[in-house]
């Protein structure tokens, strides 16, 4: 089975628009939105949700101020600075609590309990191109990496049960926990690079991450005509690192237009230059 994740390091490079275009070119593939934090692929794929699951991202501690004896042990021992006394009593900031339950275990007054967090959901859906596994995280939630692992695992299960041999993953920006979870164990990473100094800087850090996992990568330069100078630098960077450049896509307002129509660029403008480049890119990925 082949599983490709689309990543860029820098946000806004065009990962989702490009993933959507490749999705609309694919046959017998399962899709996965690994950008669980700000998922957008569903805006184009318009999924019909078939199954929905709750994702449990761990515990949050709560202090019962009636039982609390103000001993300060929890505050002292919490490594996440999640316990505050600004209001004159001890309380946990749920956004800072990591759910390690240490305070609960150490509290001599048994004033702390931990409750499960139930703010995240993930879905298995049908789309006009095939099955999609996607998620919706509650605002401010943590453990997006684990949610990525969950949706990817389900995508693999679906692919196996349908006997499909391709999974296409829309990845998150950055190179932190969510990005790491979206690329471990995949067969390849498609890097979408925007020709700006930020784009190149971020792509270099991304490539270091990909290489540390020994994963194959290929690249697309998106909006290449925004800066010829940076495009040249990126071409050289890719050459030096033996990364195949699969294509250059021009800055194209048709992408935004397609987004507004809820379609991929390939669906809306099959004859556009960008669509033709994307078709070639897809053909390459299929056989390499």
């Amino acid at each position: 089975m082949k599983e490709i994740t689309v990543l860029s390091g820098k946000g806004g490079a065009g990962k989702t628009s490009i993933t959507a275009a490749l999705v609309s070119l694919s046959e017998r593939a399962v899709f996965c939105d690994s950008d669980v934090d700000a998922a957008d692929l569903h805006l184009i794929l318009k999924p019909e949700v078939k199954e929905s699951y709750r994702f449990d991202s761990g515990y949050k501690a709560i202090i019962d101020s009636v039982k609390c004896i103000d001993c300060n042990i929890c505050k002292e021992e919490c490594r996440f600075d999640a316990i505050h006394t600004d209001k004159g009593f001890y309380e946990v900031n749920p956004f800072q609590c990591e759910g390690c339950r240490l305070c609960e275990r150490l509290c001599p007054a048994e004033a702390i309990v931990s409750v499960k967090n139930e703010n995240n959901f993930w879905y298995v859906s049908n789309t006009r191109f095939g099955p999609l596994v996607h998620a919706r995280m509650g605002p401010g939630e943590e453990n997006s990496g684990k949610l990525v692992t969950v949706v990817r695992r389900k995508a693999r299960e679906i692919a196996r049960s349908l006997n499909y041999d391709f999974i296409l993953n829309d990845g998150p920006p950055g190179i932190g926990c969510a990005a790491i979870s979206s690329l471990t164990g995949t067969s390849g990473v498609l890097m979408v690079i925007e020709p700006s100094m930020s784009g190149l800087h971020d792509a270099k850090r991304l490539l270091d991450l990909i290489n540390s996992f020994n994963i194959k990568s290929y690249a697309i330069i998106n909006k290449h005509d925004i800066s010829n100078k940076l495009t040249d630098e990126i071409v050289q960077f890719l050459k030096n690192n033996n990364i195949p450049l699969l294509g250059k896509i021009p800055f194209d307002t048709m992408f935004t237009q397609a987004m507004i129509e809820g379609k991929s660029i390939v669906e809306l403008y099959p004859e556009a230059k960008s669509s033709k480049v994307l078709k070639k890119i897809w053909d390459y990925i299929l056989v390499n």
């Binding site: 806004g12 934090d37 956004f95 605002p139 997006s144 998150p172 950055g174």
Partner: peptide, 14 residues
């Protein structure tokens, strides 16, 4: 801040 809506953004905005 970093992009997104999860814990790194909360930490920055808090």
């Amino acid at each position: 801040a970093p992009p997104g809506t999860s814990c790194p953004v909360v930490t920055t905005s808090a």
